[in-house]
Amino acid sequence: MHADAIKCVNLSRDFRSKGKTVHALKNVNLTVKKGELFGLLGPNGAGKTTLIKILTTLLLPTSGRAYVYGYDVEKEFRKIRPIINMVAGGETSGYGLLTVFENLWMFSQFYGIPNKTATERINSMLARLRIQELAKRKVRALSTGERQKVNIIRGFMTEPLIVFLDEPTLGLDVETARMIRKFVKEWIAENKERTVLLTTHYMMEADELCDRIAIIDRGKIIALDSPAELKKLVKSDVSINLEIKPAIKLDWLSRIDGIVGHTAAHQDGKVKLRLVAKDDAVVGEVVSGIYKENGKIVSLHKDEPTLEDVFLKLTGRGLE
């Protein structure tokens, strides 16, 4: 019996592109226990998908080792494949001319599931995700959200021991994303042997779902703990949200002592600013800086610290 669902030891992966070497993963050390819903949180290009590809046996590490259920991804990939499955956000797998049921049945055959069992599982999961009425609809006629629910069924109907979810709610409407999150939480709670590794750049999703989270940036794990423990890193800090009109320059913020980090989103001639600071004392300086730039404060309020603030504190940058 293997104690760990996933184990990475000094795992690195480089890519060569146009004569340059990109270090997608740098000495990643990670252990995911059986029954855990483990999150990898990081911005685009952080190395999340590369790690998932290595663990799903689609990519070899440049150096280091990775094990899934104790099996080496490099040498024992044939033993890993029957016990895993994966779903990616925005995935367009399957064949458009087949119906939802036919597509799912086809994928079930690649795992050797008998017809009767496949039919029962597909119908049950279609009902669970409330899309029974789509069973006979061709896949090419589905909306993005409907398609992702079908992808979720494809990934879970084989009853894998470990499911890899790569940004599973990417680009989905609020209701569909909520339903998928609920499904994942219930699925893992049904059996202690089940494990989920989820990558996301939505901090709220990671916070809501995950038992533990590894924050990954530029190929390195920069923090790893439960969401509550991670948020303690910024417990003594204050998070401040400001909305400023017009969209003024903010380069002067970095010169203010006490500001841990900030993110700024420009939209419709306004700028939404989120600050993480050591204490409230910086507010006065920030406000006067805004007025000096001829900006007007539309709103200002303090916030509870989030995982995004943790990332901001650790990297000085936002997740988006």
Partner: peptide
């Protein structure tokens, strides 16, 4: 191009079956 290949490769059957 349609992402089916990676699902085929990650599945347990022989790729010759595909």
């Amino acid at each position: 191009e349609t992402a089916n290949l990676q699902l085929y490769l990650a599945a347990p059957m022989s790729k010759m079956s595909i």
